[in-house]
Design a binder for these strands. Structure first.
Lengths: 257, 257
DNA sequence: GAAGATATTGAAAGATTCTGCAAGAAATTT
DNA sequence: AAATTTCTTGCAGAATCTTTCAATATCTTC
């Protein structure tokens, strides 16, 4: 049999079963497992098939119906690395404001050991520690914004303007030398209140946010004490930020999966 | 079995039960606990699963039933019947305050078709409609009370004292001719604020609450407009309540599951 | 069409990963 | 503080993967 034909048949077969073991494929095609392995390596290069220990499986564009996963699928590894790095900046028992958005969410995930007091307007973050007695969670009031699970509106703004915290862990849509920008007008007002309530402001921004400018202006760089990003951030902008006395932490690459 | 498949099955299983012990998972999958541990470590990296001492639970449960499971899985059928009956008392588009606790939670479940505005201090209720654009959810602020998923404290009280609503759907620990009682002092203050904010007050109480008296006094019967209960409620007390101009609705028995 | 070069295939050896077990460490409970 | 449960770590056996090599098939060149 022809190599190409064989590979086509493997892919076709996988379309039906989603996953197949080496043995299964070898028997199905009447060739040795070695050959199947080689074919799979080729197919993997094509992108539709992924090898696993013991076989191969179709790459399914996973339909992330879940509210927060939807935005999350991009730069997941980077965000996790940022989350870990940023969590290390938080001292034990501090009160921490956590902004809504996926990147701050990942920071919150790594915060449990610090036994912090978390103040947030993000429902996912609150759920994270809903059953934990280690972490005290304070939720701002507000109207629940459907898809994002964020509390917004005057009640939310008011909540934060009455609070005080050691640190604010923020996310945003973009950062340039002109400052921080974000897309949702509703969120900006809250972010401003969060920053006012906190002694120290940390922005967590993956590299795709660098040099990007969203519609709404949040604040200029003077109000930002630190930025945590990943290794993909453009070195030039990082240097410029540092020259403006913004501490920039570049999280190491995520460990291989 | 394949590692990936196994992990997918763990996550799937957790979607249903929200928490599972190591032993349970190991038995379910026919592998050792060590393997389950390792799988959980991987899944935890994905963010949807969280390890705990003795097992694992879902981070963003669809319905936070687990919060209540500890307290009462009792009278589930009755509570569902009460939920349905009470939901019928709510008009379309009304603003409804939903108290924390399992019985009001079941009312909220049947409210979607009414397209209400829900005001609550209960995290499980908020999660119920977090992804729905049909139902507007307003969450009071407050400190998240660990096991129950309730927002408490001055911020919560304050939130409700500033609001207005058509109806308040309440739960409690007990009802007698002397009034409503509840066990948690922290909750009572909030309940009082809720009732003040609402035009009409409905208490949802399964039959075990009748004639029972908890530690803390909430309010007397004058402030209660209606009580929804199930068929097990003692007829005598029901009559007495009616003689005091409290409307009492007895929900029919729940259909078999 | 034949001889040599190249590619493909299957099998075996060594490297890597996965799994289950057990001992010591850590956390939780009484 | 002791006792119990649960977790981590190290290890050995099994399964799987990669590398290597010989045999066969295919291609190129004359």
């Amino acid at each position: 049999m022809q190599a190409e034909e064989r590979q086509a048949r493997i892919e076709e077969y996988l379309q039906r079963v989603e996953f197949a073991s080496l043995e299964e494929l070898a028997q199905q095609l009447g060739v040795s497992q070695s050959t199947v392995r080689r074919d799979l390596t080729v197919l993997e290069g094509g992108g539709n098939v992924r090898r696993t220990h013991g076989g191969a499986r179709l790459v399914n564009p996973r339909s992330d119906e879940f509210v927060f996963n939807a935005r999350d699928t991009h730069q997941l590894d980077e965000k996790e690395a940022i989350g870990r790095a940023c969590a290390e900046l938080i001292g034990a028992g501090q009160s921490v404001i956590i902004d809504a958005g996926t990147t701050p969410y990942h920071v919150a995930r790594y915060l449990e050991s610090r036994k912090p007091q978390i103040i947030t307007n993000s429902l996912p973050v609150a759920n994270l520690y809903a059953a934990s007695s280690q972490v005290e969670v304070v939720l701002s009031g507000g109207v629940l914004y459907p898809r994002l699970g964020v509390l917004v509106g005057p009640l939310a703004v008011e909540s934060f303007s009455k609070m005080h915290a050691d640190v604010a862990v923020m996310g945003a849509g973009g950062i340039t030398m002109d400052g921080i920008t974000n897309s949702h007008a509703l969120l900006i007002e809250i972010q401003v209140a969060m920053m006012r309530a906190a002694q120290r402001v940390i922005y967590c921004l993956d590299h795709t946010k660098f040099g990007r400018r969203s519609m709404g202006f949040v604040c200029d760089l003077q109000q930002v004490h630190a930025v945590v990003t990943d290794a993909g951030a453009p070195g030039e902008l990082v240097e410029q930020l540092r020259s403006r006395r913004v501490e920039v932490i570049v999280a190491g690459a995520a460990p291989p999966r």
